[in-house]
């Protein structure tokens, strides 16, 4: 199953049909005629046919719809906003976050807490970074505002846990250093849109 059907929000292009609803009969005779027509038209058997056809489709043509959830999972849209991930730079392996504080500032439920300091090279270093997932509403503003594509929303939607602290520390969200080669550039929420080039305009100077 592809992702197209999840991405298509354009209602107008989907196949909608207006049902051919007739007026309900008024006179007793018209009612009788309708009942007789419906009785002998065999519509009931069409219904039986549909159900048994679906049964054969499901059993023998692999059209069973059930997803055995913990064993099988449906793909989710890349724009799904689940637990955050902090990405690393691919070349150096250093975390991407530059400690600008924009995400902390924009977060509308005030759940990002961060502290920064200068390291020995006078570069900014993130010393504390936590997200309080008890308050996060998964709005995605933090991912959108981040200038470095450092914080993104990952696809991890199974968030049942004994302690919510299991997710919320910087180290938990950061890509593990040994899994750096597996780090995927996230094309979902917070990433550059695919047609970003077209959207770039010259800065108008004549304000």
């Amino acid at each position: 199953m592809g992702l197209e059907q999840f991405k298509n929000r354009n209602v107008g292009t989907q196949e909608y049909r207006v049902l051919d609803l007739q007026e309900s009969p008024k006179t007793p005779m018209a009612k009788f005629v309708q009942v007789a027509k419906r009785t002998f038209k065999g519509e009931l058997f069409v219904g039986l046919g549909v159900t048994v056809r679906e049964m054969f489709n499901a059993l023998f043509r692999g059209q069973m719809h059930t997803v055995k959830y913990p064993l099988e999972k449906l793909p989710i849209s890349p724009r799904y906003r689940a637990i955050h991930e902090m990405l690393r730079l691919l070349e150096s392996g250093h975390y991407r976050c530059i400690g600008c504080g924009l995400c902390e500032k924009i977060c509308i439920s005030n759940c990002i807490t961060m502290e920064t300091r200068y390291d020995e090279n006078q570069r900014k270093e993130v010393s504390e970074y936590t997200i309080n997932f008890g308050r996060c509403i998964f709005c995605g503003y933090c991912a959108e505002v981040c200038p470095e594509l450092a914080i993104v929303h990952g696809p991890r939607y199974e968030t049942a846990s004994e302690q919510r602290a299991s997710f919320s520390l910087f180290e938990d969200m950061l890509t593990p250093i040994d899994k750096l080669s597996l780090q995927q550039e996230y094309d979902g929420f917070g990433s550059v849109s695919p047609n970003a080039d077209e959207n770039i305009k010259k800065t108008p100077l004549a304000y």
């Binding site: 159900t51 048994v52 049964m55 489709n57 499901a58 059930t66 055995k68």
Partner: peptide, 13 residues
Amino acid sequence: KVLAFMQRRLGPT
């Protein structure tokens, strides 16, 4: 089971 199959579900498994 039969109702499930007719609705393309699996029923008790």
